[in-house]
Amino acid sequence: MKVLSKSKLETALNKLNQSAEVFLPMQKDKESGFYSWKLFNQGQDELMLNALNVYLPPKNVVLPQTERMYSIKQEGQEIKIDKTFEDSSPRVIFGARPCDLKAILCMDDVFLTRGYEDSFYKCRREAITIVANACFQPGPACFCAAMEINPLEPAGADVIICDAGEAYSWEAKTPKGEALTAQITEYLEEKSLSLPAAKPFVQDVKYEGVAEKLKGMFNNHIWERLGESCHNCGICTYVCPSCYCFDIQVKMWGDEGYRFRCWDSCMYEEYSREAGGGNPRGSGIERFRNRFLHKLEFFKERYGTPLCTGCGRCIVACPAGINIVKIIDEIKEAELDA
Protein backbone atom coordinates (compact mmCIF):
# COMPACT_ATOMS: atom_id res chain seq x y z
CA MET A 1 0.00 0.00 0.00
CA LYS A 2 0.94 3.64 -0.35
CA VAL A 3 2.36 5.16 2.80
CA LEU A 4 3.05 8.73 3.86
CA SER A 5 5.70 8.82 6.54
CA LYS A 6 4.96 11.38 9.26
CA SER A 7 8.46 12.77 8.82
CA LYS A 8 7.47 13.77 5.28
CA LEU A 9 4.03 15.13 6.18
CA GLU A 10 4.98 18.80 6.35
CA THR A 11 6.92 18.68 3.09
CA ALA A 12 3.94 17.04 1.45
CA LEU A 13 1.63 19.71 2.87
CA ASN A 14 3.91 22.43 1.54
CA LYS A 15 3.73 20.79 -1.86
CA LEU A 16 -0.08 20.57 -1.81
CA ASN A 17 -0.22 24.15 -0.58
CA GLN A 18 1.34 25.34 -3.84
CA SER A 19 -1.75 24.49 -5.86
CA ALA A 20 -4.53 24.57 -3.28
CA GLU A 21 -5.38 26.02 0.10
CA VAL A 22 -4.99 23.15 2.57
CA PHE A 23 -7.15 23.07 5.70
CA LEU A 24 -6.07 20.91 8.61
CA PRO A 25 -7.12 20.37 12.18
CA MET A 26 -4.95 22.50 14.43
CA GLN A 27 -4.78 24.09 17.80
CA LYS A 28 -4.32 27.86 17.53
CA ASP A 29 -4.08 29.57 20.88
CA LYS A 30 -7.18 28.48 22.73
CA GLU A 31 -9.11 27.49 19.64
CA SER A 32 -9.04 24.35 17.66
CA GLY A 33 -10.54 23.78 14.28
CA PHE A 34 -9.67 23.47 10.60
CA TYR A 35 -7.36 26.28 9.54
CA SER A 36 -5.32 26.97 6.45
CA TRP A 37 -1.80 25.53 6.39
CA LYS A 38 -0.72 29.03 5.34
CA LEU A 39 -1.72 30.28 8.78
CA PHE A 40 0.20 27.60 10.63
CA ASN A 41 2.78 29.15 12.96
CA GLN A 42 5.63 26.77 13.62
CA GLY A 43 6.37 26.54 17.30
CA GLN A 44 3.09 28.16 18.35
CA ASP A 45 0.34 26.18 16.70
CA GLU A 46 -0.08 22.48 16.93
CA LEU A 47 -1.22 20.09 14.21
CA MET A 48 -4.09 18.01 15.52
CA LEU A 49 -4.31 15.17 13.03
CA ASN A 50 -4.07 12.77 15.94
CA ALA A 51 -7.03 14.30 17.76
CA LEU A 52 -10.40 12.68 17.24
CA ASN A 53 -12.28 15.91 16.95
CA VAL A 54 -11.07 19.46 17.07
CA TYR A 55 -13.54 21.92 18.60
CA LEU A 56 -14.80 23.28 15.27
CA PRO A 57 -15.55 21.04 12.30
CA PRO A 58 -14.39 21.82 8.72
CA LYS A 59 -17.89 23.14 7.92
CA ASN A 60 -16.47 26.60 7.23
CA VAL A 61 -14.47 25.25 4.28
CA VAL A 62 -17.58 24.07 2.40
CA LEU A 63 -19.98 26.66 3.81
CA PRO A 64 -18.10 29.74 5.04
CA GLN A 65 -19.41 31.43 8.14
CA THR A 66 -20.00 34.48 5.98
CA GLU A 67 -19.89 34.42 2.20
CA ARG A 68 -20.38 37.29 -0.23
CA MET A 69 -22.96 36.49 -2.90
CA TYR A 70 -23.26 39.47 -5.25
CA SER A 71 -22.58 43.16 -5.50
CA ILE A 72 -25.29 45.82 -5.48
CA LYS A 73 -24.90 49.25 -7.02
CA GLN A 74 -27.61 51.88 -6.91
CA GLU A 75 -27.89 55.01 -9.01
CA GLY A 76 -31.17 56.86 -8.66
CA GLN A 77 -33.83 54.36 -9.67
CA GLU A 78 -31.30 52.17 -11.47
CA ILE A 79 -29.80 49.20 -9.76
CA LYS A 80 -27.08 46.85 -10.90
CA ILE A 81 -25.72 43.47 -9.90
CA ASP A 82 -22.43 43.40 -11.75
CA LYS A 83 -20.52 40.80 -9.80
CA THR A 84 -21.31 37.48 -8.23
CA PHE A 85 -18.81 35.84 -5.95
CA GLU A 86 -18.83 32.11 -6.59
CA ASP A 87 -15.45 30.86 -5.47
CA SER A 88 -14.00 27.85 -7.23
CA SER A 89 -10.40 28.08 -6.08
CA PRO A 90 -8.98 24.67 -5.18
CA ARG A 91 -9.04 23.62 -1.56
CA VAL A 92 -8.08 20.49 0.34
CA ILE A 93 -9.56 19.37 3.64
CA PHE A 94 -6.80 17.24 5.07
CA GLY A 95 -7.65 14.92 7.93
CA ALA A 96 -11.42 15.20 8.14
CA ARG A 97 -12.79 12.57 10.48
CA PRO A 98 -15.53 10.29 9.09
CA CYS A 99 -18.23 12.11 11.09
CA ASP A 100 -17.21 15.46 9.61
CA LEU A 101 -17.00 13.96 6.14
CA LYS A 102 -20.50 12.53 6.48
CA ALA A 103 -21.74 15.97 7.56
CA ILE A 104 -20.39 17.39 4.29
CA LEU A 105 -22.23 14.68 2.36
CA CYS A 106 -25.43 15.72 4.16
CA MET A 107 -24.81 19.31 3.04
CA ASP A 108 -24.24 18.04 -0.50
CA ASP A 109 -27.76 16.56 -0.34
CA VAL A 110 -29.19 19.89 0.80
CA PHE A 111 -27.33 22.24 -1.52
CA LEU A 112 -27.05 20.11 -4.65
CA THR A 113 -30.29 18.11 -4.85
CA ARG A 114 -34.09 18.49 -4.67
CA GLY A 115 -34.70 20.79 -7.58
CA TYR A 116 -32.04 23.47 -7.18
CA GLU A 117 -28.27 23.52 -7.14
CA ASP A 118 -26.88 26.33 -5.05
CA SER A 119 -24.21 27.87 -7.31
CA PHE A 120 -22.14 29.28 -4.45
CA TYR A 121 -21.95 25.94 -2.71
CA LYS A 122 -21.51 23.97 -5.93
CA CYS A 123 -18.55 25.96 -7.28
CA ARG A 124 -16.77 25.82 -3.95
CA ARG A 125 -17.53 22.18 -3.28
CA GLU A 126 -16.46 20.90 -6.68
CA ALA A 127 -13.00 22.36 -6.11
CA ILE A 128 -12.59 20.70 -2.70
CA THR A 129 -10.67 17.46 -2.25
CA ILE A 130 -11.20 15.63 1.01
CA VAL A 131 -8.58 13.50 2.70
CA ALA A 132 -10.40 11.56 5.40
CA ASN A 133 -8.65 10.31 8.49
CA ALA A 134 -10.09 6.92 9.47
CA CYS A 135 -10.94 6.35 13.15
CA PHE A 136 -9.93 3.25 15.05
CA GLN A 137 -10.42 4.32 18.62
CA PRO A 138 -13.75 6.03 19.32
CA GLY A 139 -13.68 8.82 21.92
CA PRO A 140 -15.91 9.07 24.98
CA ALA A 141 -18.55 11.16 23.15
CA CYS A 142 -18.33 9.42 19.75
CA PHE A 143 -21.24 7.46 18.28
CA CYS A 144 -20.81 7.72 14.51
CA ALA A 145 -21.35 4.01 13.88
CA ALA A 146 -24.86 4.38 15.29
CA MET A 147 -25.53 7.17 12.78
CA GLU A 148 -24.89 5.05 9.70
CA ILE A 149 -21.16 5.79 9.34
CA ASN A 150 -18.28 3.39 8.84
CA PRO A 151 -15.37 5.04 10.69
CA LEU A 152 -12.76 2.75 9.13
CA GLU A 153 -13.85 3.08 5.53
CA PRO A 154 -15.96 6.27 5.28
CA ALA A 155 -18.01 6.84 2.13
CA GLY A 156 -17.41 9.97 0.09
CA ALA A 157 -13.69 10.47 0.81
CA ASP A 158 -11.32 11.31 -2.05
CA VAL A 159 -8.41 9.84 -0.09
CA ILE A 160 -8.51 7.80 3.10
CA ILE A 161 -5.53 7.87 5.45
CA CYS A 162 -5.02 5.75 8.55
CA ASP A 163 -2.65 6.62 11.34
CA ALA A 164 -0.29 3.65 11.88
CA GLY A 165 2.15 5.27 14.28
CA GLU A 166 5.16 6.41 12.26
CA ALA A 167 3.26 6.76 9.01
CA TYR A 168 -0.16 7.13 7.41
CA SER A 169 -1.51 4.62 4.97
CA TRP A 170 -2.72 6.53 1.90
CA GLU A 171 -5.46 5.27 -0.38
CA ALA A 172 -6.97 7.31 -3.20
CA LYS A 173 -10.67 6.56 -3.69
CA THR A 174 -11.73 8.94 -6.48
CA PRO A 175 -10.21 10.66 -9.54
CA LYS A 176 -9.85 13.79 -7.40
CA GLY A 177 -7.99 11.70 -4.85
CA GLU A 178 -5.75 10.25 -7.57
CA ALA A 179 -4.90 13.75 -8.78
CA LEU A 180 -3.97 14.76 -5.25
CA THR A 181 -1.88 11.62 -4.87
CA ALA A 182 -0.02 12.41 -8.09
CA GLN A 183 1.01 15.79 -6.67
CA ILE A 184 2.84 14.24 -3.73
CA THR A 185 3.86 10.96 -5.25
CA GLU A 186 7.52 11.68 -4.57
CA TYR A 187 6.80 11.66 -0.81
CA LEU A 188 4.78 8.45 -0.83
CA GLU A 189 6.37 5.07 -0.37
CA GLU A 190 5.10 1.66 -1.39
CA LYS A 191 5.27 -0.69 1.55
CA SER A 192 3.16 -2.77 3.86
CA LEU A 193 1.94 -1.27 7.09
CA SER A 194 0.08 -2.92 9.89
CA LEU A 195 -2.98 -0.88 10.72
CA PRO A 196 -4.28 -0.60 14.28
CA ALA A 197 -7.16 -2.81 15.39
CA ALA A 198 -10.54 -1.13 15.74
CA LYS A 199 -11.59 -0.53 19.36
CA PRO A 200 -15.22 -0.75 20.51
CA PHE A 201 -17.40 2.33 21.03
CA VAL A 202 -17.78 3.73 24.55
CA GLN A 203 -21.22 5.17 23.77
CA ASP A 204 -23.95 2.66 23.12
CA VAL A 205 -26.47 4.40 20.91
CA LYS A 206 -29.32 2.69 19.13
CA TYR A 207 -30.81 5.00 16.53
CA GLU A 208 -32.81 2.31 14.67
CA GLY A 209 -36.49 3.09 14.76
CA VAL A 210 -36.05 6.56 16.29
CA ALA A 211 -37.04 8.52 13.15
CA GLU A 212 -40.16 6.39 12.75
CA LYS A 213 -41.11 6.68 16.39
CA LEU A 214 -40.62 10.45 16.38
CA LYS A 215 -43.27 10.80 13.71
CA GLY A 216 -45.85 10.23 16.42
CA MET A 217 -44.13 12.35 19.05
CA PHE A 218 -44.47 15.94 17.88
CA ASN A 219 -46.97 16.74 20.61
CA ASN A 220 -45.44 14.41 23.18
CA HIS A 221 -45.03 15.77 26.72
CA ILE A 222 -41.36 14.69 26.66
CA TRP A 223 -40.14 17.87 24.90
CA GLU A 224 -41.06 20.13 27.82
CA ARG A 225 -38.79 18.15 30.09
CA LEU A 226 -35.97 17.53 27.60
CA GLY A 227 -35.79 21.15 26.53
CA GLU A 228 -36.33 22.74 29.92
CA SER A 229 -32.68 23.47 30.58
CA CYS A 230 -31.88 24.68 27.03
CA HIS A 231 -30.85 28.35 26.92
CA ASN A 232 -31.26 28.50 23.13
CA CYS A 233 -27.69 29.79 23.03
CA GLY A 234 -27.00 28.13 19.69
CA ILE A 235 -23.57 26.71 20.53
CA CYS A 236 -24.75 23.25 19.44
CA THR A 237 -25.54 24.58 15.97
CA TYR A 238 -22.24 26.46 15.84
CA VAL A 239 -20.05 23.46 16.61
CA CYS A 240 -22.22 20.99 14.70
CA PRO A 241 -20.53 19.74 11.51
CA SER A 242 -23.87 19.31 9.74
CA CYS A 243 -25.94 22.32 10.89
CA TYR A 244 -26.14 24.28 7.68
CA CYS A 245 -29.02 26.76 8.15
CA PHE A 246 -28.12 30.16 6.78
CA ASP A 247 -29.39 33.70 6.67
CA ILE A 248 -29.13 36.12 3.75
CA GLN A 249 -28.32 39.73 4.62
CA VAL A 250 -27.15 42.88 2.92
CA LYS A 251 -24.31 45.29 3.66
CA MET A 252 -24.42 48.73 2.06
CA TRP A 253 -22.09 51.70 2.18
CA GLY A 254 -24.16 54.48 0.67
CA ASP A 255 -25.14 53.36 -2.81
CA GLU A 256 -22.85 50.35 -3.02
CA GLY A 257 -22.63 47.11 -1.20
CA TYR A 258 -23.21 43.42 -1.40
CA ARG A 259 -25.53 40.67 -0.33
CA PHE A 260 -24.03 37.90 1.73
CA ARG A 261 -25.08 34.80 3.54
CA CYS A 262 -24.00 33.71 6.95
CA TRP A 263 -24.60 30.86 9.34
CA ASP A 264 -27.82 31.11 11.25
CA SER A 265 -29.22 29.06 14.08
CA CYS A 266 -32.67 27.57 14.55
CA MET A 267 -32.16 28.19 18.26
CA TYR A 268 -32.70 31.93 17.84
CA GLU A 269 -36.08 33.60 18.04
CA GLU A 270 -35.37 35.77 14.96
CA TYR A 271 -34.74 32.69 12.83
CA SER A 272 -38.41 32.06 12.14
CA ARG A 273 -39.93 35.38 13.29
CA GLU A 274 -42.06 36.83 10.53
CA ALA A 275 -42.25 40.45 9.47
CA GLY A 276 -45.70 40.87 11.02
CA GLY A 277 -44.34 39.67 14.38
CA GLY A 278 -45.76 36.15 14.27
CA ASN A 279 -43.50 33.23 15.00
CA PRO A 280 -44.48 29.59 14.53
CA ARG A 281 -41.63 28.63 16.87
CA GLY A 282 -41.78 31.49 19.31
CA SER A 283 -40.87 29.50 22.42
CA GLY A 284 -37.51 27.98 23.26
CA ILE A 285 -39.05 24.55 23.67
CA GLU A 286 -40.55 24.70 20.18
CA ARG A 287 -37.17 25.58 18.72
CA PHE A 288 -35.45 22.87 20.75
CA ARG A 289 -37.98 20.33 19.50
CA ASN A 290 -37.57 21.43 15.89
CA ARG A 291 -33.80 21.04 16.07
CA PHE A 292 -33.87 17.52 17.38
CA LEU A 293 -36.68 16.49 15.06
CA HIS A 294 -34.73 17.95 12.13
CA LYS A 295 -31.61 16.02 13.14
CA LEU A 296 -33.27 12.72 13.94
CA GLU A 297 -36.52 12.60 11.95
CA PHE A 298 -37.14 15.26 9.28
CA PHE A 299 -33.78 15.02 7.53
CA LYS A 300 -34.00 11.23 7.50
CA GLU A 301 -37.47 11.44 5.94
CA ARG A 302 -36.33 13.86 3.27
CA TYR A 303 -32.82 12.65 2.47
CA GLY A 304 -32.72 9.11 3.84
CA THR A 305 -30.10 9.65 6.52
CA PRO A 306 -30.01 11.41 9.89
CA LEU A 307 -28.49 14.88 10.17
CA CYS A 308 -26.48 13.88 13.22
CA THR A 309 -23.15 12.22 12.54
CA GLY A 310 -22.29 11.20 16.09
CA CYS A 311 -19.28 13.49 16.48
CA GLY A 312 -20.29 14.38 20.02
CA ARG A 313 -19.29 18.06 19.80
CA CYS A 314 -22.65 19.40 21.00
CA ILE A 315 -22.49 17.13 24.04
CA VAL A 316 -19.16 18.64 25.01
CA ALA A 317 -20.10 22.23 24.16
CA CYS A 318 -23.58 22.53 25.69
CA PRO A 319 -23.49 24.69 28.83
CA ALA A 320 -26.71 23.10 30.05
CA GLY A 321 -25.52 19.51 29.71
CA ILE A 322 -28.00 18.59 27.01
CA ASN A 323 -26.89 15.32 25.52
CA ILE A 324 -28.22 14.05 22.22
CA VAL A 325 -27.32 10.48 23.16
CA LYS A 326 -29.54 10.69 26.23
CA ILE A 327 -32.25 12.30 24.13
CA ILE A 328 -32.15 9.39 21.70
CA ASP A 329 -32.40 7.01 24.67
CA GLU A 330 -35.32 8.94 26.13
CA ILE A 331 -37.11 8.92 22.80
CA LYS A 332 -36.70 5.18 22.57
CA GLU A 333 -38.07 4.71 26.06
CA ALA A 334 -40.81 7.35 25.85
CA GLU A 335 -44.42 6.31 26.06
CA LEU A 336 -46.52 7.57 23.22
CA ASP A 337 -49.27 9.90 24.40
CA ALA A 338 -52.69 8.38 24.09
Partner: peptide, 19 residues
Protein backbone atom coordinates in the same frame (compact mmCIF):
# COMPACT_ATOMS: atom_id res chain seq x y z
CA UNK B 1 -49.11 28.49 4.11
CA UNK B 2 -46.36 30.94 4.79
CA UNK B 3 -43.39 31.19 7.07
CA UNK B 4 -40.30 33.31 7.15
CA UNK B 5 -38.11 32.50 4.15
CA UNK B 6 -34.63 33.47 3.06
CA UNK B 7 -33.54 31.28 0.16
CA UNK B 8 -36.84 30.22 -1.42
CA UNK B 9 -35.31 26.99 -2.74
CA UNK B 10 -35.45 24.62 0.22
CA UNK B 11 -31.90 25.16 1.47
CA UNK B 12 -31.76 27.75 4.25
CA UNK B 13 -33.81 25.70 6.66
CA UNK B 14 -36.35 27.95 8.32
CA UNK B 15 -39.68 27.38 6.55
CA UNK B 16 -39.99 23.69 7.32
CA UNK B 17 -43.13 22.06 8.57
CA UNK B 18 -41.95 18.60 9.42
CA UNK B 19 -39.78 17.44 6.56
Amino acid sequence: LEMRMKCGIGKCGRCNIGS
